[in-house]
Design a protein around this nucleic acid. Structure first.
Lengths: 212, 212
DNA sequence: TGCTAATAACCGACTGGTCAGTTATTAAGG
DNA sequence: CCTTAATAACTGACCAGTCGGTTATTAGCA
């Protein structure tokens, strides 16, 4: 051992980001309750005590993960849904593609699954996820659908239910990947699923006269 | 207190069923990890030690819950899907109705959510759920879809993906109810959702020439 | 430029509480 | 009165959060 090597380094600015990244990984892998603060600390290269210099509680740490690592992705989708000028069909294809990409490259699916599984025991976790992500995304999607209905592009029906129909297969595919593939189930290919679903649902949603 | 009243009664035959019923309730409410054996025992009217007279471990108890309280419901759906003689459209409407009913009156949704949430930490739980329920149900549904495709009733496409598209909104609605409604979100009406989804998806799945 | 407080980032052992599973003991019931 | 269902106290392991001590870094001074 080098006796001159420092035991640690003071890096106040970098710590929070590193801790949030480590927490994201551990929450995604283990879930909220089973995530060990010792492990998060170890992965972030600090001691458990250091966690409490930057975050008040485990829940507070989760809030930071949602706000910094997850929410920006959803905000991008929301912006797209709200700003899109063209016909509904194009909007839907665009959003689906973007969502599939985000699901493919981030841990959002794992964290969503975590939220689902632990909502009852940690309502605050569910509330954060709902208020900061889901409610906004759902409002944006159903708003776009309602607007398309007003233009006569989409058949009558509850816009909120349409929004649920739209995203549910993707969510279920993620759940499948996280839940059953590890115990031997055949995975679903996200691209196949998204394209087949978009075609099916468009055929079902679009009003008769609309272009394709 | 009545000094003549017995402290307990020996009821070897009834205990397992009562324990399984109590375990179902607690697993559904709390999830696997957060379910306390003390609480299960209390609800079953026995001591914790008595649990171990009938079940080896907590996981073993969960296996019994799946086998005795959940699997029979799914087996009924499966039988319907496999035996249905008429056109695909009728089969789909029948299965959807039956599923909506089961979801409405049993705790299957809560337990499904539990399995999803705790799969990674308790792979054995996920394996039991998949092997004894999901795999069979998915095979039956995609088999029926493939058969309908062979008869020219349903458009080309991966039958497994179609099956996923079919059931995913219902599952997501249950997840929504269990996860976000308790923290203030607006619930989805299961009947509205099922009927709108069936109409949408049928319009998207059925081949052009098929009747409606 | 070097030396020495003073500061605060960081560590890690510890606490208080929880809980799955075990076991010594009791009493129900043939 | 003897077998065994059932109890209740117990054990050992685990973990979120705390806190007194330690060390890197900086500021002050020569």
């Amino acid at each position: 051992m080098d006796p001159g090597a420092p035991k640690f380094r003071r890096r106040k600015a970098e710590r929070p980001g590193e801790i949030v990244a480590a927490a994201l990984a551990v929450f995604a892998e283990k879930g909220f309750a089973a995530a060990r603060l010792d492990e998060i600390a170890a992965r972030a290269g600090v001691s458990k005590g250091a966690l409490y210099l930057y975050f008040e509680t485990k829940e507070d740490l989760f809030r930071a993960v949602v706000g910094q690592a997850i929410a920006p992705n959803i905000a991008a989708v929301r912006a797209m849904a709200e700003a899109h000028p063209g016909p509904f069909e194009d909007l839907l294809r665009g959003v689906a593609t973007q969502l599939a990409h985000i699901v493919g490259v981030t841990r959002i699916g794992s964290v969503a699954k975590m939220v689902i599984g632990e909502a009852r025991n940690f309502p605050e976790v569910a509330r954060v996820w709902h208020d900061e992500l889901v409610a906004h995304a759902l409002a944006a999607m159903s708003g776009a659908i309602a607007a398309a209905q007003a233009r006569g592009e989409v058949k009558p029906g509850d816009p909120r239910v349409y929004a649920l129909q739209l995203i549910s297969p993707m969510l279920l595919a993620v759940i499948w990947r996280e839940t059953f593939v590890p115990v031997g189930a055949e995975p679903f290919d996200l691209n196949t699923l998204v394209s087949q679903h978009v075609e099916t649902i468009l055929r079902g949603m679009l009003a008769e006269g609309a272009s394709t």
